[in-house]
Design a protein around this nucleic acid. Structure first.
Length: 255
DNA sequence: TTCCTGGGCG
DNA sequence: CGCCCAGGAA
């Protein structure tokens, strides 16, 4: 052990996992998280993410539909985004080349139900233009790149932040990446595990450290968390009486 | 009818 | 930290 390691107080390693507000259970975090997953799965059933807006579950979206949906769902309920995805499909715009060539006004009109239609039009067309220019329109080639490179590439595009990038990595590129979101932060803060202001990367590091590196598993986990967060563990007036995790929740007030 | 929710950017 | 938006809750 080096001198600097000796000097550092326990639990103060700056590069380590996030400081958790709850002691590790005797079974360990991996088993605890697995138990949570099982409860959510039996409560809600498989979520079949990423859902296709064009066909009923368990149909899954094709890569470009998935990516368009991920951009359109930013800051809105899925039902709104799904309307926009269907409108794009009917207009033949769920296609890289067609989207890149489409007039912005036409896209804006079609995606209006998803809100933020001007920014989201720029994001959709920007993404399509990027794939057209860099990959000759071959989205599969882009999605085949190594995970760290692909993530950096996605994050460099305007309108794709950490959550959207990680959703694309998991659901379109099939990588074992678990997306985090406002629901994840709120649920695990209420449970008493996370600080309410925990950073995205720290949440993700915790889940990645204690769940199997499996794209299907992590994708399902994120989907189940989303379902819990939107249906029951809502920001205001959470429905704790119906929550499958109620008995192990600290019910921390996250304001 | 107003209020609230929700990613990403400049 | 304010702005972009629609639609469900209150």
């Amino acid at each position: 052990m080096t001198r600097s390691e000796e000097r550092r107080a326990p639990g103060q390693d700056r590069a380590g996992p996030p400081r958790l507000l709850m002691p590790e259970p005797a079974e360990g975090w991996a088993a605890w998280l697995d138990g949570l997953f099982r409860r959510l799965l039996s409560a809600f059933g498989p979520r079949h993410w990423w859902p296709s807006a064009l066909a009923p579950a368990p149909a899954r979206a094709e890569p470009f539909e998935m990516i368009a949906g991920a951009i359109l769902v930013q800051n809105v309920a899925w039902s709104n985004a799904a309307k926009a995805v269907r409108a794009l499909a009917e207009a033949g715009l769920l296609d890289v080349a067609a989207m890149a060539a489409a007039p912005a006004e036409a896209v804006e009109r079609l995606i209006r139900p998803a809100g933020y239609f001007r920014q989201k039009t720029g994001r959709l067309k920007g993404f399509a233009a990027y794939v057209s220019e860099r990959y000759g329109g071959d989205l599969a080639a882009m999605l085949a790149r190594p995970t760290p490179d692909l993530r950096a590439e996605l994050l460099a595009l305007s309108g794709i932040g950490p959550e959207t990038a990680d959703c694309i990595l998991c659901y379109a590129a099939d990588r074992p990446v678990m997306a985090m979101d406002a629901y994840t932060r709120r649920i695990f803060a209420r449970l008493g595990l996370f600080s309410p202001d925990i950073r995205y990367h720290d949440m993700q590091a915790f889940f990645h450290a204690h769940t199997p590196a499996d794209a299907a598993l992590r994708g399902e986990y994120h989907a189940l968390i989303d379902t819990l967060g939107s249906r029951l563990c809502r920001k205001r007036a959470p429905r704790c009486g119906e929550c499958p995790l109620a008995d192990l929740c600290a019910r921390v007030d996250v304001a």
